[in-house]
């Protein structure tokens, strides 16, 4: 199974590469748009942190690290969820699951592999890593093996949390295809719009909500608190991966329910918009 997944990823990486390099103008334009989007999406908070010398209780360098972490955590789902796989409600709401159902492989495998686009968003990965390295150096952060392990786990957890949360909302489209067609996008927006903000200033109720019901805090704020020592204790380091695992389980269960329903009602509204490129 692992070999098949790798084989499919290689196939989709090839298609992604071919697509990006299909002509010079598109190639340049694509990366330019990507770079501008990456910079513009963090510039607001970055400038705010510069102006106010941090966002209490975070220092400026910590905010910079947080922004970098958020960018990389966003890159992974984007890389795995192209062709609207991350925005799964569109695929379901537009009746595009039919294309997957005619493939001789489990639906989860198709969804795990067919959105793989490693060349997508490379220019948000590079600045994200750059910001983290730059801030880490200024803070004198020691990247010991245990810390790197915790970092990798939290990064994977943040990415998985975003994917699972978008999917959880997105599966609503199994039940209400038209009304919920864009719901995954709203869920992604909610998670990612707040990913660059230190959320400590919120009241305890909202803070709890933002790591549970609407886990935008898991995208960067909560894992970075643990990684940068703002939150002491080993539990904090494990909280994001654990929450992500719980979200993934919930998403899997909902997906099974949704697929049962899809087999019963199918989709009466088909559009190829955004299906493949």
């Amino acid at each position: 199974m692992a070999a098949r997944i790798l084989r499919l990823w290689a196939l989709y990486a090839y298609l992604d590469g071919m697509w990006i390099a299909r002509d010079f103008r598109s190639f340049i334009f694509y990366y330019l748009a990507d770079a501008v989007t990456a910079v513009a999406s963090v510039a607001g908070v970055l400038l705010l942190a510069q102006r106010f010398d941090g966002i209490p209780p975070w220092t400026r360098d910590q905010v910079v690290f947080l922004l970098g972490f958020g960018m990389v955590a966003r890159f992974v789902p984007d890389m795995l969820g192209n062709y609207n796989v991350l925005h799964i409600s569109r695929r379901i709401g537009r009746g595009q699951l039919d294309h997957i159902l005619v493939q001789p492989q489990p639906v989860w495998m198709a969804l795990l592999t067919e959105g793989f686009a490693p060349f997508w968003g490379l220019l948000s990965l590079a600045p994200g890593v750059g910001l983290m390295v730059w801030a880490g150096q200024r803070m004198g952060l020691e990247a010991t093996p245990p810390w790197l392990l915790a970092f990798a786990l939290n990064l994977a957890g943040a990415s998985a949390a975003l994917t699972a949360y978008a999917a959880l909302w997105g599966f609503a489209a199994f039940f209400q295809p038209r009304a919920a067609e864009e719901i995954s996008g709203s869920a992604v927006d909610l998670m990612t719009d707040l990913k660059g903000f230190p959320l400590d200033a919120l009241g305890p109720g909202l803070r709890t909500a933002l790591v549970t019901v609407i886990p935008a805090g898991l995208m960067a704020w909560y894992p970075c608190r643990a990684l940068l020592g703002l939150d002491h204790g080993i539990a904090a380091l494990w909280a994001t991966p654990a929450a992500a695992a719980a979200l993934c389980c919930a998403a899997c269960l909902t997906f099974r329910m949704g697929m049962k329903r899809y087999a019963q009602v199918g989709s009466s509204r088909y559009t190829s918009f955004g299906h493949r490129r």
Partner: peptide, 19 residues
């Protein structure tokens, strides 16, 4: 089932691997 922005040959190759 064809990949919109790819040559027909690429779609066929895609089918070969997935199927």
């Amino acid at each position: 089932e064809l990949w919109w922005d790819h040559p027909v040959a690429a779609s066929y190759e895609w089918k070969r691997v997935v199927w």
